[in-house]
Computed example of a mutant assay.
Amino acid sequence: MPKLLPSIVSVIEIYYQYATEEGECNSLNRAELKELLENEFRQILKNPDDPDTVDIIMQSLDRDHNKKVDFTEYLVMIFKLAQACNKIISKDYRQTSGSKQRHHSYQHQEEQSETEEEEKGQESSSSHSSWSTGEENDSYSRDSRSIKHKTGSSSRRLGYQGAMAKMDLAQVNVLVTVNMALALALALALALALALALALALALALVSILTLSNMGLAHVCHLALNNMILDLVNILAMSNVDK
């Protein structure tokens, strides 16, 4: 028989039982909420006879501030009470489940120890039975080990030769790569030296051009100064003649 559905129906019926006491059936006023709390939750209320208890609960539930508690706000109260009760009840369930787990682990350890003892007994019996046949197969096992040793040594020699051949090929590849890198570096160095020589020649040519141009400019300035001095002397001479 289901238990959850009748509990839900009981929550709804209790709401309407107290909501219909004063005519309206869609909400709980302060008096109806007080009666509901005193009758249904008196055992868990901290101060059930204190009038402020109803006012505090009404303020926490009345979200639309109409001084009434509708069905949704009533469900919020039920939800909060369920959370509070879950904190207490869950501790008991955790303790019960923990004891069950410990008991189960203890049984498992006992079963495992019994299984290990049975396996040890079987191993001891099989070892006694195989002791007699082991002496007969010693010679055969020695021969087989010698054959395996010979084949293993030959395979190791072949593997060593193959590894050496691979190492030689790798060394040749490395040497070729290094030589190519050195040749490329040498070519780059020669190209850089030629570029530096060309730049030096261009710089020397530019210096020569600038030196020659400066010398020509100085000569022109000197001639112009001499001409100005001669003109001044002529002007002074002509002025003395007039006097």
Rank of each mutant, 00 (worst) to 15 (best):
M1D: 11
L5V: 11
V9I: 14
I12W: 07
E13N: 14
I14N: 04
Y18T: 02
Y18Q: 02
Y18M: 04
T20N: 13
E21W: 00
E24L: 04
S27V: 03
S27K: 07
E32Y: 00
E35G: 05
E35R: 12
E38Y: 02
E38F: 01
N39K: 11
E40I: 09
F41C: 11
F41E: 05
F41A: 09
Q43R: 07
P51M: 03
T53D: 01
V54M: 01
V54I: 10
I57T: 02
K68F: 02
V69A: 00
M77P: 02
L81D: 07
C85T: 10
G98R: 13
G98C: 08
Q107E: 14
H108D: 08
Q112V: 04
Q112S: 14
E117N: 10
G121N: 14
S126R: 10
S127C: 08
T133H: 13
E135I: 15
N137W: 05
D138W: 06
S139W: 03
D143K: 08
S155C: 05
R156L: 15
R156V: 09
Q161N: 13
M167T: 08
D168Q: 12
A170S: 15
M180A: 15
L182G: 02
L184D: 14
A185M: 09
L186S: 10
L186M: 09
L188I: 04
L188H: 03
A191L: 12
L202Q: 05
V207M: 03
I209D: 01
L210C: 08
G216P: 00
L217G: 03
A218H: 07
N227E: 13
I235A: 14
N240L: 11
V241F: 07
D242Y: 12
K243P: 01
